[in-house]
Amino acid sequence: MNMTEFLQANGLVLLGGVAQGLIWGVMAIGVYLTYRILDFADLSVEGTLGLGAAVSAVLIEGGMNPFVTLIFATLAGMLAGLATGVFNTVFKIPPILAGILTMIGLYSITIRVLGGSASMFIADNRITTGLRSVLQSWGIFPKDYLNNITVTILGIVILVLLICFLYFFFGTEIGTSIRATGANPHMARALGVPTSIMVVLALVISNGLVGLSGALIAQTQGSADVQLGQGSIVIGLASIIIGEVIFCRKDHSFGYKLSMVVVGSIIYRIIYAVTLRIGLKASDTKLITALIVLIALAVPVIKNAIQTRSLRIANDKKYAGGNADA
């Protein structure tokens, strides 16, 4: 099968992976900010994603412009991050537990937001429906691809804006202080950085992005669901780790690293789509996710072990040779 045939056969799967990967990439960047920059494994993400989706869905049903609902979804996510931050810095609850508290609390809150039910359909007034009809009117895209192209364009625009914003923000005094807080809190405090405030701020920004991502996911798939965030932290980590293992070195710039998180997210989605295509069930995907993360984490360790082993073998040969001479 040549490339053209392959693309014709699987193009929709690939494009679908890219589209989903971009939208979920917004969440992965949020996870990156806490997990990598702040060194804080924040599980509130699992609740925040669904909350963002619910807020957006409810507001759209209430007649609000779908773009404007993104702002409110982001704000809702920020509030969730604020809660986790306060739990951790004021009440000294360890990061994992602080995140879990927010996560389970948000489950109930999200159902409240959805008016008592666990999920909600969003009628046609979505960003994607609007954008789709514009693209359709140009008449240059094949009909089958239109949905995914719409989401891809939306995702790229949002991510470019987002990565630019974060790139500049983390170059400011406050942004640098957040990075220093994550890298070395002792040093940060000795240099007058109020580390507690930085932790809260980073959690607020991170969960704001996750809320935004939830809203985008809800609008693209046409529904919000309280279960949406389930397993999302692992998906976020998978995206980060895939991006890092395949593309990153330590000395790469911050903007590049953020972009690679998104690429990791896309690769994750493509693998995910392919596994479904080769006949696995939707319920198998959690196992696949766990395996992807496991493999991505194991690869560097195995690489290292092989290197050490080959060094040792070379070393053994050298000394064995010496003995033979003696």
Binding site: F169, G171, T172, E173, I174, T176, S177, V193
Partner: peptide, 11 residues
């Protein structure tokens, strides 16, 4: 910047 309040000016 040890002695001053951090702002959104460049780091």
């Amino acid at each position: 910047r040890r002695t001053k309040r951090r702002t959104l000016a460049w780091g």
